[in-house]
Protein backbone atom coordinates (compact mmCIF):
# COMPACT_ATOMS: atom_id res chain seq x y z
CA UNK A 1 0.00 0.00 0.00
CA UNK A 2 2.71 2.51 1.00
CA UNK A 3 6.17 2.94 -0.53
CA UNK A 4 9.25 2.10 1.53
CA UNK A 5 10.03 5.81 1.79
CA UNK A 6 6.60 6.58 3.22
CA UNK A 7 7.03 3.80 5.77
CA UNK A 8 10.53 5.04 6.64
CA UNK A 9 9.34 8.61 7.25
CA UNK A 10 6.29 7.30 9.12
CA UNK A 11 8.21 4.97 11.40
CA UNK A 12 11.18 7.32 11.82
CA UNK A 13 9.78 10.80 11.29
CA UNK A 14 12.33 13.61 10.98
CA UNK A 15 12.01 16.91 12.82
CA UNK A 16 9.20 15.99 15.20
CA UNK A 17 8.61 18.50 17.96
CA UNK A 18 8.07 22.16 18.65
CA UNK A 19 10.16 25.33 18.44
CA UNK A 20 9.51 27.51 21.47
CA UNK A 21 10.54 30.83 19.92
CA UNK A 22 9.38 29.98 16.40
CA UNK A 23 9.37 32.71 13.78
CA UNK A 24 6.17 31.29 12.34
CA UNK A 25 3.67 28.57 13.26
CA UNK A 26 0.99 27.16 10.96
CA UNK A 27 -1.80 24.73 11.80
CA UNK A 28 -3.95 23.17 9.09
CA UNK A 29 -6.49 20.34 8.88
CA UNK A 30 -9.34 19.29 11.11
CA UNK A 31 -9.53 16.54 13.74
CA UNK A 32 -12.99 15.60 12.45
CA UNK A 33 -11.45 14.72 9.08
CA UNK A 34 -8.68 12.77 10.76
CA UNK A 35 -5.63 14.93 10.17
CA UNK A 36 -4.11 18.05 11.71
CA UNK A 37 -0.60 19.34 10.96
CA UNK A 38 1.24 21.97 12.96
CA UNK A 39 4.45 23.35 11.48
CA UNK A 40 7.04 25.45 13.36
CA UNK A 41 9.64 27.50 11.46
CA UNK A 42 12.78 29.26 12.68
CA UNK A 43 13.79 31.89 10.14
CA UNK A 44 16.95 34.02 10.29
CA UNK A 45 17.49 37.60 9.20
CA UNK A 46 18.34 36.48 5.66
CA UNK A 47 14.95 34.79 5.39
CA UNK A 48 16.58 31.36 5.53
CA UNK A 49 14.68 28.59 7.30
CA UNK A 50 17.25 27.40 9.83
CA UNK A 51 15.04 24.98 11.73
CA UNK A 52 11.71 23.23 11.17
CA UNK A 53 9.65 21.08 13.52
CA UNK A 54 6.22 19.53 13.16
CA UNK A 55 3.49 17.79 15.07
CA UNK A 56 0.86 15.79 13.23
CA UNK A 57 -2.33 13.97 14.14
CA UNK A 58 -3.15 11.62 11.32
CA UNK A 59 -2.47 8.49 9.37
CA UNK A 60 0.88 7.17 8.16
CA UNK A 61 0.87 9.30 5.01
CA UNK A 62 0.01 12.46 6.97
CA UNK A 63 2.99 11.86 9.26
CA UNK A 64 5.29 10.90 6.38
CA UNK A 65 4.38 13.93 4.25
CA UNK A 66 4.91 16.26 7.23
CA UNK A 67 8.30 14.71 7.85
CA UNK A 68 9.34 14.90 4.19
CA UNK A 69 8.11 18.49 3.84
CA UNK A 70 10.24 19.61 6.80
CA UNK A 71 13.31 18.02 5.24
CA UNK A 72 12.60 19.67 1.89
CA UNK A 73 12.35 23.21 3.25
CA UNK A 74 15.09 23.13 5.86
CA UNK A 75 17.93 25.43 4.78
CA UNK A 76 15.81 26.99 2.03
CA UNK A 77 14.77 30.61 1.87
CA UNK A 78 11.17 31.52 2.61
CA UNK A 79 10.55 32.24 -1.08
CA UNK A 80 11.97 28.88 -2.06
CA UNK A 81 9.87 27.13 0.58
CA UNK A 82 6.75 28.80 -0.81
CA UNK A 83 7.39 27.04 -4.09
CA UNK A 84 7.07 23.62 -2.44
CA UNK A 85 4.16 21.76 -4.02
CA UNK A 86 2.21 18.81 -2.72
CA UNK A 87 3.22 16.89 -5.83
CA UNK A 88 6.90 17.41 -5.07
CA UNK A 89 6.39 16.08 -1.54
CA UNK A 90 4.48 13.05 -2.82
CA UNK A 91 7.13 12.38 -5.48
CA UNK A 92 9.93 12.63 -2.93
CA UNK A 93 8.14 9.86 -1.03
CA UNK A 94 7.96 7.71 -4.21
CA UNK A 95 4.26 8.40 -4.48
CA UNK A 96 1.16 8.15 -2.31
CA UNK A 97 -2.00 6.09 -2.82
CA UNK A 98 -4.54 8.30 -4.69
CA UNK A 99 -6.89 8.38 -1.69
CA UNK A 100 -4.02 9.81 0.41
CA UNK A 101 -2.96 12.65 -1.90
CA UNK A 102 -4.85 15.13 0.30
CA UNK A 103 -2.23 14.50 2.99
CA UNK A 104 0.46 15.99 0.75
CA UNK A 105 -1.81 18.97 0.09
CA UNK A 106 -2.03 19.43 3.84
CA UNK A 107 1.78 19.40 4.12
CA UNK A 108 2.08 22.12 1.48
CA UNK A 109 -0.63 24.16 3.22
CA UNK A 110 1.08 23.76 6.60
CA UNK A 111 4.33 25.20 5.25
CA UNK A 112 2.42 28.09 3.63
CA UNK A 113 0.45 28.75 6.82
CA UNK A 114 3.62 28.89 8.91
CA UNK A 115 5.26 31.31 6.46
CA UNK A 116 2.14 33.47 6.41
CA UNK A 117 2.24 33.57 10.20
CA UNK A 118 5.90 34.62 10.04
CA UNK A 119 5.13 37.41 7.55
CA UNK A 120 2.17 38.65 9.58
CA UNK A 121 4.36 38.80 12.68
CA UNK A 122 7.00 40.72 10.76
CA UNK A 123 4.42 43.21 9.47
CA UNK A 124 3.27 43.86 13.03
CA UNK A 125 6.84 44.34 14.20
CA UNK A 126 7.54 46.97 11.56
Amino acid sequence: MYSEKVMDHFEHPRNVGEIEDASGVGTVGNPVCGDVMKMYLKIDENEVITDVKFKTFGCASAIATSSMATEMIKGKTVDEALELTNKAVAEALDGLPPVKMHCSVLAEEAVKAAIEDYRNKKLKEN
Binding site: P13, V16, T27, P31, V36, M37, K38, K55, T56, F57, I63
Partner: peptide, 8 residues
Protein backbone atom coordinates in the same frame (compact mmCIF):
# COMPACT_ATOMS: atom_id res chain seq x y z
CA UNK B 1 0.72 11.20 21.20
CA UNK B 2 4.10 12.89 21.54
CA UNK B 3 3.79 13.63 17.84
CA UNK B 4 0.19 14.84 18.01
CA UNK B 5 -0.64 18.57 18.12
CA UNK B 6 -4.01 17.67 19.68
CA UNK B 7 -2.50 15.95 22.71
CA UNK B 8 -0.80 19.07 24.09
Amino acid sequence: RKMSPLYE
